[in-house]
Structures are given as structure tokens and as C-alpha cells.
């Protein structure tokens, strides 16, 4: 891995990040959105760990005879971020399950349509103004 030219790694990581990001914002299925968030975040973790790496360095556990170590700080940060990521996934999935129970679907379009129907029956006409863009 270290033999690769320095910047190439980063470019691949960028591609991975954007693949995840695309899944989050372009897909209508809520579960798939969460998978996308997971991919996006995992790729950001790779970015951090890549910058902590040191050519010829060892894992940052003090060992006799070793003087050059990779930086421990990005590792610590990413340990935290991994846990935060899975916590978010858990809460998101719990929400998705409740949405499935309330709407009978986890497809954004279906949910949106049934909300619109609710509004119509409530106010007589769709509340069009507050839906500009509507993610």
C-alpha cells in the first residue's frame, strides 16, 4: 500500500466518499439511505487513518527497539467516530422501523404521497407552499 504514489490513495477515498454520499441523497429507500450514510462515514474514516500513517512506522504500541510509530491521534478520533456512526445507524433504523409500522412502507415517495393525502383531507387542498423542494 505504501508503495503507491502518495496522492492516489486519497483520490480513491474521495470516490468512495462520494459513492456513499450519492446513495444517501439520491436513493428513496430509507434503509438504503442509512447504508449510504454508513459507507460515507466509513470512507471518511479511511481518510483520517490514511493521514495518520507514517512510512516505515509501526502500530502505536510501545515496543522495544522501535522508534518510529504511526500517529495514534487519528486512530483515537476514528475510534470515537466509528462508535458515533453505529449509534446513528441504530437510531435511524429504529426510526425506519417505526415509519414502516406507521406508513406501511420505507419508500420516500410512498410516504410523501400518503402525507399529501392526509393534508388534503385535513385542509381541503394540498398545502403546496410548505413543500418547496421537499428533499
Amino acid at each position: 500500500m505504501n508503495a503507491l504514489p502518495g496522492i492516489f490513495n486519497y483520490l480513491v477515498v474521495v470516490f468512495l466518499m462520494m459513492a456513499g454520499f450519492y446513495v444517501v441523497i439520491a436513493q428513496g429507500n430509507l434503509i438504503k439511505k442509512l447504508v449510504g450514510l454508513g459507507l460515507f462515514q466509513a470512507s471518511v474514516f479511511i481518510l483520517y487513518i490514511t493521514m495518520g500513517n507514517l512510512a516505515g512506522g509501526a502500530a502505536p504500541i510501545v515496543t522495544e527497539g522501535v522508534t518510529v510509530y504511526s500517529s495514534p491521534l487519528p486512530h483515537v478520533l476514528i475510534l470515537t467516530a466509528i462508535v458515533v456512526g453505529v449509534a446513528t445507524t441504530a437510531v435511524g433504523l429504529a426510526l425506519a422501523v417505526r415509519i414502516q409500522e406507521a406508513y406501511g412502507s420505507v419508500e420516500e415517495e410512498v410516504i410523501h404521497a400518503s402525507d399529501l393525502r392526509d393534508d388534503e383531507s385535513l385542509f381541503g387542498e394540498p398545502a403546496a407552499c410548505d413543500r418547496e423542494g421537499g428533499q
Binding site: 444517501v24 439511505k33 450514510l37 483520517y48 435511524g92 426510526l95 415509519i99 402525507d115
Partner: peptide, 27 residues
């Protein structure tokens, strides 16, 4: 209202994207 659930989910997705952007920036 059941829309509280979708509102929370939408906020979760956008909020997490925001937090990840902040993470990238700090990185």
C-alpha cells in the same frame, strides 16, 4: 403525528451529513 417520525428521520439524515462534513473539515 406520525409525520414526527419522518421529520426526525429527515433531520437525522441531513444532520448526519452535516456532522460528517464538519468531520471532514476538521480532518
Amino acid at each position: 403525528d406520525r409525520r414526527a417520525l419522518t421529520a426526525a428521520f429527515q433531520y437525522l439524515v441531513m444532520g448526519t451529513i452535516g456532522a460528517t462534513f464538519i468531520l471532514i473539515g476538521i480532518g
